[in-house]
Write a protein that binds this DNA or RNA. Structure first.
Lengths: 250, 250
DNA sequence: TAGTTTAGTTGACGTAGATCAACTAGCCAG
DNA sequence: CTGGCTAGTTGATCTACGTCAACTAAACTA
């Protein structure tokens, strides 16, 4: 009934898992490499980007404490990053959708600080970091771009701290829905028909809530006519109401 | 009775507020510029670092949405960073002690994402970011150093997310005490005699707790013989117990 | 096609920490 | 020294969310 996913059967040449044999023609480049780079600079970047076989659901891109070698761009599908604390609990640190870049937490100590796993079949671009450093020394725009990417992740993480430490369950979930909706819009997908690639458990973990609370809040939003939910398919009926809830003070 | 602070009366030439007329002789450089730079590279950095008058308590270093120009290193004193959400609540995003660097959240959008205010009289080094970018293009070690700094802040923020979303009040406060103790040790100050530069309100805000809960947990720790507290002076009696509590799963 | 497993929902109840409120101790102004 | 102000402490009560438990429905398998 609700059908949004663009990643179903990797079959023909138009399939996003195989499309985009280079950065210049990749329709995600506007997200992945915003404004920063000139045409000839993109060509240089293109030479260092590696495009592997699609990852199956559940396959890892890297694991916590692996040697840091590369950052990764999601081309299609969806990836979850999570880390394990001393005490053994899992903390989901982020969801990465097409056009988004992950793995930068590994730069600081030459080891990934989190693990990354495909939540569904995903195509990934791998960018060896040594080459980024090289290229950044030569291309000021490239350097600037990665400084920005890192800085933006800091700002997002700090917003997330506010979210989980000062906001109610409803505000947290509304905020996640609004975020995914906006990221869909950025890729020219419907901001109102959303396929959630992650489980309720992952959502709860990410938002600092239990699975039961997530489920209850989904039900409550549905009862209030803000959304329709059917498993992982989500129809947003009143995005403005959700935005209001999301930015409500505590 | 307990006296730890090194920042009392800025008076003579040995006062840390005025000391260190250059990076090479700054006793904090080991924290501020770890390993990365060669001697002659430090000299180049030194030329772009600006050292202003000491900031008085309550004075701002920058404010949220100000144009981003520089990052800052704390030379003495202590600085608090905080941001304001749409809904108007304050979120303390970090405490910065001597040798630590702040302001990097401004790189991403050319505006600071937070405000920074001195919690006590503080001496600050200002490093214009345009110069850092320049120098990073020339000195690979410099570039690498700032990539690392940014990445480490991401990792810390993610740990903080785990702390506030999955840990109890006792675990959060123990974690903060252990962190400040370790940062004291790094500067060759006593890890057990600590002066907390921030108010209970700031601690609570940072940890996602109310001031009352912070107060109660301090009292409980004292009753258990783990610490002695007198206002902002803190004596750690059992650091191992605190470390155990801090890393306890939820 | 029955039987098991896995993901999610819903309800009843318990609890950590928030809220509200009273109180104490410095500390500055006059 | 007195009165008001600010920062912190402590107690009594309330509540949002966690916990525990029962249930439903796909999806997997044998």
């Amino acid at each position: 009934m609700i059908a949004v996913s663009e990643h179903n059967a990797p079959s023909d040449k138009h399939c996003p898992h195989n499309a985009a044999i280079n950065c210049a023609s990749c329709r995600l480049s506007a997200i992945c490499l915003p404004l920063a780079l000139a045409q000839d600079e993109i060509v240089q970047l293109d030479e260092i980007v590696q495009r592997g076989r699609p990852l199956q659901k559940g396959q890892h891109l890297y694991r916590e404490n692996d040697n840091f070698t590369s950052v990764f761009a999601v081309r299609s599908g969806a990836v979850k990053a999570y880390s394990m604390s001393d005490s053994g609990e899992e903390q989901v640190t982020g969801f990465y959708l097409p056009g988004e870049i992950l793995g930068m937490d590994g730069i600081g100590h030459n080891r990934y600080a989190s693990s990354a796993v495909a939540m569904e079949v995903s195509a990934i671009c791998e960018i060896p970091f040594a080459n980024i450093e090289d290229l950044s020394g030569k291309l000021p725009n490239m350097q600037k771009h990665f400084f920005k990417l890192l800085s933006q992740e800091i700002v997002e993480d700090q917003r997330h701290i506010t979210l989980v430490s000062k906001h109610t369950a409803e505000e947290r979930l509304a905020s996640l829905i609004v975020s995914i909706s906006a990221r869909n819009a950025r890729r020219n997908l419907s901001p109102l028909n959303i396929r959630l690639p992650m489980s309720r458990t992952d959502i709860g973990n990410f938002l600092g809530l239990t699975i039961e609370t997530v489920s209850r809040v989904f039900s409550r939003f549905a009862k209030q006519g803000l959304i329709e939910v059917d498993k992982k398919e989500l129809v947003v009926l009143d995005i403005d109401a959700l935005k209001t809830i999301a930015s409500l003070g505590h």
